[in-house]
Nucleic acid binder design. Structure first.
Lengths: 239, 239
DNA sequence: TAATTATTGTCTCAATTTGAGACAATAATA
DNA sequence: TATTATTGTCTCAAATTGAGACAATAATTA
């Protein structure tokens, strides 16, 4: 079949579903701080959550996994859908136009990318240490930012991050949060640091240790000699 | 401006966003049973959740409220978005075609209604007693069904109901569930019946009463004389 | 080599919450 | 007037949580 030039006003030609986008809040943990991935668009300084579109023959969840794999190189990422944002107030075609223009794309007003989008949002938990973030075609960087020192983001992305964190907090006891943010083996103190970073509050050491061991989900391994002048802690992993 | 015949292959002409639908799981409580609203499509016997589409200039949440108002006559319904279903497996254009045909609409293969849809799903809690369900143009009935005696539903609607119930259970302590399913004034037993219907398990009466009163959310009113041969219970309302 | 320091793992005891039932009060009926 | 079914409250035991004590220990320092 001869390749025809697609009509940029018709989303079908793009291969993507119309009016639907996804955004992902990628959490990582490092240096006792909770962080998320943000991308910066070429020549604009605009910061945003990594996101994308859904192929016409692709599962929604798979589209998000695909996007994350491109950004992090990781397969089998822990993913949780938490909310779909659909207010008309998030429709600001000038922003997308600015981004496209800064990348050398001049588009008509009826281009499908300038139409209104509803964003299905996910959060991901990944092991910070085995990721080298990669930007995509439109962005010149993909970098970690401290969750409590976030810069201004485009559209409603600040709201999206807030809701992601709220959901993560609500889920911290139900889902195995620590398992996904830490290396396979970790100390009890590291695990507690993760909990404290997510909840934004200090926890009592002895109670934390008791309840964690009480779940029966942890497996104890050899001790870890850090070289510091104190008793060496055990390493643990999730069963 | 002269009215032009809209191209049915172009969703923009319809006034709705493409590829996006919503479905709502409307919970009501009656006779110690939890129930949901289902619609039946004309001449097909097909049962489905009440749903609809999002206007191009309409907030997603407002679209759902609008749909519910049409079905129940109620404003200010308690609504909670819980998941967005986006698998390709839910794309079955023959079903929509069957429904349209049974209503006398013959449509082309490229009609926007036959395209793939992602469903943003909500659950609603309403006071059963002040609702008279109304069907819409495509459906011939809108009726209550027992949550544990559900008939087969189209597409993935059974999965959607299951996830709605799961979320409702998870939220039962965080959100004021009883408030929205009961009349303004109710007895402690009625409230317990709601909890038991949602959780699907019996609860201990004295413990339930203690914890409910302990929240400080209930206001006690006059007694209610049912005519039965036993002590009359107090009525309560949420503050 | 022996004190010192900074943790870590475990234990204890009090405080709080939850489970399970006892019991008196009471609205209609027999 | 006794009976029945249910309600509101109270009690006591069991389980969980809060708060801290204390010994163990890996390096450092005296």
């Amino acid at each position: 079949m001869a390749k025809k030039k697609a009509d940029p006003a018709d989303p079908k030609g793009s291969g993507y579903l119309a009016n639907i986008a996804y955004d992902s809040v990628v959490f990582g943990f490092s240096g006792e701080k909770l962080k998320i991935l943000l991308i910066k668009y070429h020549n604009t300084g605009l910061l945003a959550l990594p996101g994308g579109f859904v192929g016409r023959n692709e599962n929604l969840n798979d589209a998000v996994k695909r996007g994350l794999k491109e950004r992090t190189g990781l397969d089998n990422i822990y993913l949780e859908q938490f909310y779909t944002f659909g207010d008309t107030a998030r429709f600001k075609p000038e922003i997308m136009r600015t981004i496209l223009k800064a990348n050398g794309h001049i588009v008509n007003n009826d281009h499908w990318l300038l139409d209104r989008f509803i964003s299905v949002s996910y959060y991901a938990l990944i092991n910070y240490t085995d990721v080298v973030p990669k930007p995509d075609a439109l962005s010149d960087s993909c970098t970690w930012y401290d969750i409590d020192k976030l810069p201004a983001l485009i559209l409603d992305h600040t709201t999206i991050v807030a809701k992601a964190l709220e959901t993560l907090r609500a889920n911290i006891d139900k889902k195995l949060v620590g398992m996904n943010l830490l290396p396979v083996k970790f100390t009890m103190k590291q695990l507690q640091n993760v909990y404290e970073a997510i909840l934004g509050e200090k926890m009592r050491r002895t109670t934390f240790q008791r309840t964690m061991l009480g779940t029966g989900l942890l497996k104890r391994h050899e001790k870890h000699y850090s070289g510091k002048a104190h008793k060496a802690p055990y390493m643990y992993s999730f069963r």
